[in-house]
């Protein structure tokens, strides 16, 4: 148990260091968020937009930045030809969890950045209940990372990687997106924490189901 956690952490660290050295995904992603946000700010202009609508827009930014960034984890291994080496050093499940951890860290950093910018610059978006808002962001990030990691593993084996990623991910992430948008709306409307409990239950069970099924199926993808 301790041994496998060590291996998972090693894979996580390897990805983290190589990312920090090359900044391949990070720089592009930060620029992506800034670009998208400025387009939204330009299009809003001086109009007053309802905060309910803006809570949907926030998740549109997060969804598309996830789609442009997270496919890299497995694709880069495939492109650099390091898949065989990974096959040798670790069992599939450990690789999956190492990659999941890295994607989670990347997405969490990205989402904190996005949400901070969003709260600062989109003035008509004001959160009423921060407890709901923060829980939604955290659970949403966990679910997005879990769903997009397994799809990224599938994508790495296909020919047209970039365009296929959002196509495959959208139907799977749709339950998550609908729920987080609903929960964000509740946080804007300053609802009680208990009112959003149903949303959190759905998010939590979604996270568990998707992680377990990825855990069971990853071996089949990895061995291909």
């Amino acid at each position: 148990m301790v041994e496998s956690i060590k291996i998972i952490l090693t894979i996580f660290k390897k990805d983290l260091y190589s990312e920090l050295r090359t900044r391949y995904a990070l720089n592009a992603l930060l620029m992506f968020v800034i670009t998208t946000l400025s387009i939204i700010l330009f299009s809003i202009g001086n109009e007053s937009v309802s905060p309910e609508l803006l809570s949907g827009v926030l998740w549109i930014i997060i969804f598309f930045s996830t789609m442009s960034g997270l496919s890299r984890t497995f694709v880069s291994e495939e492109e650099r030809g390091t898949v065989m080496t990974l096959h040798l050093i670790a069992k599939p499940l450990k690789i999956y969890f190492g990659k999941l951890l890295f994607n989670l860290a990347l997405l969490l950093g990205l989402n904190i950045f996005t949400v901070a910018l969003y709260l600062l610059f989109v003035t008509s978006f004001s959160v009423g209940n921060y407890a709901i808002f923060i829980t939604t962001i955290i659970l949403g990030t966990l679910g997005l990372a879990s769903g997009s990691t397994i799809i990224a593993a599938i994508i790495a084996k296909a020919n047209t990687k970039g365009t296929l990623y959002p196509v495959l991910s959208f139907p799977i992430l749709l339950p998550l997106l609908l729920t987080v948008i609903n929960a964000t709306k509740l946080s804007v409307e300053n609802a009680l924490f208990a009112e959003a409990l149903g949303e959190f239950q759905i998010l939590f069970s979604y996270l568990i189901v998707l992680t377990v099924i990825s855990f069971l199926l990853f071996e089949f993808i990895w061995k291909e």
Binding site: I172, Y206, L210, I221, E224
Partner: peptide, 18 residues
């Protein structure tokens, strides 16, 4: 065959959430 079967299973699992 393998990848499409895996995708079908993952997608099928998320449908009941609706």
């Amino acid at each position: 065959a393998t990848l499409s079967a895996v995708y079908a299973i993952i997608a099928g699992i998320t449908v009941p959430f609706f």
